[in-house]
Structure formats: C-alpha cells, structure tokens
C-alpha cells in the first residue's frame, strides 16, 4: 500500500518530471501560453504516459537491452499518432490550437524516462500508477505555468475554455482589469515562469542546504 503511495507522491511531487527531473521542457515552455492549452497538453501527455507504460511493462521480459530505446520510441510514436488522430476527430478545434505539439509529445523525455526507469522494471499495475501520477504531476506544472503566464501576459484566465467545454462556454473566462505584460506570453516569459517555479521548489526542497547541514553536523561532532 505504502509502495503505491510513494509512487503517487513521487510522480506528483518528489520526482515531478517537470520541476525536479526537468524533463519534457520543450512542450512545457512552448505550449503554456494559456491555462487551457496547458491543460489540454497535460491530459494528452498523461494518456500517452499511461498507455506506453502499460505496454512497455507487458513486453518488458522480451526486450533486447541494446534496442530497447528504439522499441520504446516506436511504441510511443504509434500511440501519439493515434491520439493525434483521435483529437483531430473529436476535438477538432483544440487540435487546431495544439496542432504541432501533440505529435511533439513523442519527444517528451518524461515518457521515455518513465518507460526506461519504471515500466521496463515493474509490473503493469505499478507502471500505470507511476505513469498516471507522473502525467498528473506534469499536468499540474503545465496548469500553474499556463495560468501564471496567462494572467501576467494577457490579464485573463481560462480563455479558450470553449475548445474543451464546447461553444456554450465561449465567454466564461475571467478578464482581469489590466492588459498584461506581453513578455510573459513570449518565449522569455516561459523561461522566467519556469525559473520562478523551480526557485519556489528550491524553497521547499533546498538540496544545497541539506548538503551543508549534513556537513556542518559532522564537522561539529568531530571538531
């Protein structure tokens, strides 16, 4: 039980792919111009993660070590293509916005890392939980970054929600009483935003200070 709990906590926080492992930065930086974009990409990534993890886990005993990466990539790309076609069929508008970035999920290192380090070594159940929690952790970061950039860069929140909820929700986004600083929407804003998130993470997990504290403890006890 506690094993599953660690898996979930790992994916969401302690081994969060975007914040701690700094994987999948490319879609993270490119797509988070609004919260809704971030959400959509996050969901797509999570679905791909769960599927690839379960498939890789199933075939893990038959893998040849030297060509495993090749096989992972083949599996991931097939799945992503499927999801790309599905979104195009059922969420055509969203597909228009995410367009290029759904195929780009293939290059998201989170998925490859999960396949390599989790799915190819664990049972299917564990792999699915790990993949799902990592996907959700990634989605959470996309949401926070997307929301942050949208508020600062456009002065709005949930714009484009209609792409997910349908036309009835066209006007149901929040507009703040300022126009926003455009730089947050532009590529530099993505880097600033991610940097701030990582800085905040360092406040909670100060890796450097742990090292220092341990050192001083030892030198005190010996000095």
């Amino acid at each position: 039980m506690s094993d599953i709990k660690t898996l979930i906590v790992d994916g969401l926080w302690t081994k969060n792919p975007a914040l701690i492992q700094l994987l999948g930065i490319c879609p993270l930086l490119a797509i988070t111009t609004t919260l809704v974009n971030g959400l959509a990409l996050g969901i797509a990534t999570t679905v791909v993660l769960i599927c690839t993890n379960s498939i890789v886990s199933l075939i893990r005993h038959t893998l040849l070590p030297s060509v495993r990466i090749l096989i992972f990539v083949m599996i991931i790309s097939s799945l992503v293509t499927t999801i790309d076609l599905l979104t195009n069929a059922f969420f055509h508008e969203l597909h228009g916005v995410l367009g290029l970035f759904i195929p780009l999920i293939i290059t998201n290192c989170t998925i490859l890392a999960q396949a390599e380090s989790v799915a190819s070594r664990n049972s299917i159940g564990k792999s699915i939980i790990s993949g799902g929690s990592a996907g959700l952790g990634f989605t959470a970061v996309l949401l926070v970054l997307g929301g942050f950039r949208e508020i600062i860069g456009r002065g709005s929140l949930f714009s484009g929600i209609d792409m997910i909820l349908g036309d009835s929700a066209t006007d149901s986004f929040i507009k703040f009483p300022f126009d926003g600083a455009l730089v947050a929407i532009l590529p530099p804003g993505a880097f600033f935003g991610l940097a701030i998130l990582i800085a905040l993470r360092n406040l909670f997990i100060p890796t450097a200070t742990i090292e220092q504290r341990l050192e001083t403890n030892i030198s005190e006890s010996h000095g």
Partner: peptide, 8 residues
C-alpha cells in the same frame, strides 16, 4: 528589452 517586449 523587457519593457519593449511587454509594452510595445
């Protein structure tokens, strides 16, 4: 540069 990008 930040000003120019943000508030053209």
């Amino acid at each position: 540069a930040i000003l120019l990008l943000s508030f053209p």
